[in-house]
Nucleic acid binder design. Structure first.
Lengths: 138, 138
DNA sequence: GTTCAAATGCAACAATGTTGCAAAATAATA
DNA sequence: TATTATTTTGCAACATTGTTGCATTTGAAC
């Protein structure tokens, strides 16, 4: 088991349960984003559907993971950077979704470019959703 | 009725029906984005739910409207620019969702900034989803 | 107006997400 | 470690959202 799992749960004052450990491990192992369905399948119906929903919801609230915007209405989640998990502050993100294999990447190290909006708009968060072909599929 | 409605439908080789006229008019009147639920409510249950789904799907396929990516898993649609409706080419877009009133704006005239991705990623489309407070709510 | 093609409405279904509550697991305390 | 209190889970039931097939209706072409 990944050593950071228990740490992360404790730091966020969450009870250490099987489902939380397993789901958090999935995120740590595979760096790409996960959808609810992915988790349900990979866990082999070990956990109730409701438990997975609630676990994801809890992780989002605590800032452990975040949702990724997508145009096709498929909710995906990805790990937040470590600093993100301490506060509830949502960072700006660049995400990349591969049209070929469907993998969604959370590109933490890509800087979000500045967006100039019309007068009157106050921007608090900017998400960039790029799509195309990923490095594995090129 | 907005004069462009019949034109747009004819140009896209679509039969001119009540539902299409009304739904297209909704998009032309209010410049913000619309969700399926908005259309269902505003039309006063005049059309079947399925018809609305199919109409939206058709409009997307023809390039008359496009979906807006969002993190909260709510599918919203907005009119494409005129040039967009001729081909199926999807332009890069900047969208803005107001945290206060929930209105989603499609900012056609804001230029999408260049995003520098790691080697191996080939970008074909970039969507920018900004959020904060809109001009009406400030 | 008649004929043909397309779109609609209905019903039934599938997928996704939510809520309340009793049972079980975890954490806190002695 | 045993006991109590709190949290989490699983189940059931429900709500919402989206899809599909097919008969009926509507619009387009002639």
């Amino acid at each position: 088991m990944h050593p950071r799992i228990v740490d992360t749960l404790k730091r966020n004052q969450l009870s250490i349960t099987d489902s939380r450990k397993k789901i958090l491990e999935m995120f740590l192992q595979r760096k790409g984003a996960l959808a609810h369905a992915d988790i349900e399948q990979q866990s082999g119906e070990e956990f109730d559907r409701v438990t997975i929903y609630r676990t994801l919801q809890t992780f989002v609230e605590k800032g452990i993971i975040h949702t990724i915007p997508s145009a096709d209405n498929s909710v995906r989640y990805a790990l937040c950077k470590d600093d993100c998990s301490e506060g509830h502050h949502h960072d700006n993100h660049v995400h990349f979704m591969c049209d070929h294999c469907g993998t969604t990447y959370c590109l933490d190290h890509v800087t979000v470019p500045a967006v100039v909006l019309p007068t009157g708009f106050k921007v608090t968060q900017v998400d960039v959703v790029a799509s195309g072909t990923c490095m594995k599929c090129q």
